[in-house]
Simulated scan of single mutants.
Amino acid sequence: MAAPLKLISHKLCPYVQRAVIALSEKGVPFERIDIDLAEKPEWFLNISPLGKVPVLVVASDDGEVALFESNVICEYIEDSQQGTRLHPQDALTRAQHRAWMEFGSAILADLWGLETTTDPATFANKRAAIAAKFARVEGALGLGPFFAGESFSLVDAVFAPIFRYFDVFDEIVDLSVFDETPKVRRWRVELARRPSVRSAVGSDYAKLLRDFLLRHDAHLLKLAA
């Protein structure tokens, strides 16, 4: 029997990883379909108004429904599926978590600039912006091990793919982004151990990311020792 959920994916996309982690944390079966975003299939463009991944295709009585935008998909997974709660019950706390999920997206926007720029000044500005944002995250973290303490949440699902970039970047050059954020460093280590986080990408992730940097002639690679 086919899985009732199909996740349209790309192997490097951090937004896809959010959905994969949420589904895994809840123990929900799904089919993952990776596509080439450089040559998007027509069937994908027909169901994705923005032409972006992830898209979650949900089987319903009226046929298949395609959901787009990663935070919307994660919220649907939380609202519709059984398993561990990934959002707080309290409305105010839940809203705070949603705000920090958006903050994670802002960090990803800076990361895109960091990894694709060929300009040293732009690179330096993006590195500084990312470090400043993580300084704000440091102030929001408690005792851990996760964002909300003992409970893994959707905020953790958002930040785990961000930290994964640095697992590859650290092999190239020390960007010193986390030097002044000990809580963030501990959080990063804890998330890297999480089975749902580890399984959100394939074993070829690091190679694919390095290939991506090469294709963009990234300034980051020029900093390698």
Results as ranks from 00 to 15, higher is better:
Q82P: 04
K26F: 04
A109W: 11
K40E: 15
R136C: 14
A2Q: 08
R164Y: 14
Y76A: 05
V58M: 14
E25F: 01
E75Q: 05
H87M: 04
C13R: 01
L143W: 14
G142L: 12
L67K: 04
P182W: 01
F166M: 08
A131E: 04
A66Q: 08
L208Q: 08
V57P: 09
A91S: 09
S151D: 07
D61S: 13
A99Q: 13
Y15P: 00
H219E: 02
L209W: 15
T118Y: 02
F68H: 09
S48F: 14
L67E: 15
T116M: 08
Y165L: 11
S196I: 04
V16H: 02
N125Q: 10
G139E: 03
S9W: 00
V184T: 07
L191C: 01
T118D: 10
V58A: 12
A225V: 11
D204L: 11
F152T: 09
S9V: 00
F123Q: 00
T181Q: 11
R210C: 06
A206L: 15
S203Q: 11
A140W: 08
K183W: 11
S199Q: 01
R198L: 06
V57T: 10
L108A: 08
P120M: 05
L213D: 06
A95W: 00
A99K: 15
A95V: 00
R186W: 01
S196N: 02
R215Y: 08
V53M: 13
D79G: 10
W100K: 10
A132F: 05
A131G: 12
E75R: 09
W187H: 09
F212L: 06
G83V: 00
A91Q: 03
V184C: 08
I8R: 02
R185D: 01
P54K: 00
K222Y: 08
F159K: 12
G149V: 12
R186H: 00
R85H: 15
G104D: 01
A91L: 02
S80T: 08
V28A: 01
V28E: 01
R136F: 10
D61H: 14
R98G: 02
G51D: 02
A132Y: 12
R185E: 01
N125L: 14
D167N: 10
I77W: 08
F159R: 09
P161L: 00
W112M: 05
P49N: 06
E75P: 07
G149P: 12
L108H: 11
E171N: 14
V55W: 03
A192R: 06
V155D: 12
K11Y: 03
I172R: 07
A59G: 06
A124Y: 07
R94L: 03
D174V: 12
R186D: 03
D34H: 02
V158L: 05
M1S: 03
L37V: 11
L5I: 08
F68P: 13
I47P: 13
L221V: 03
T122I: 13
L7P: 00
A22C: 06
P145C: 07
L220C: 05
K40P: 07
L223F: 09
A124C: 04
E42C: 05
G104K: 03
G149S: 15
A160H: 03
E42R: 14
L191K: 06
E42S: 06
T84Q: 09
S153G: 03
P41S: 05
A91K: 01
E102T: 06
A38M: 15
A129N: 09
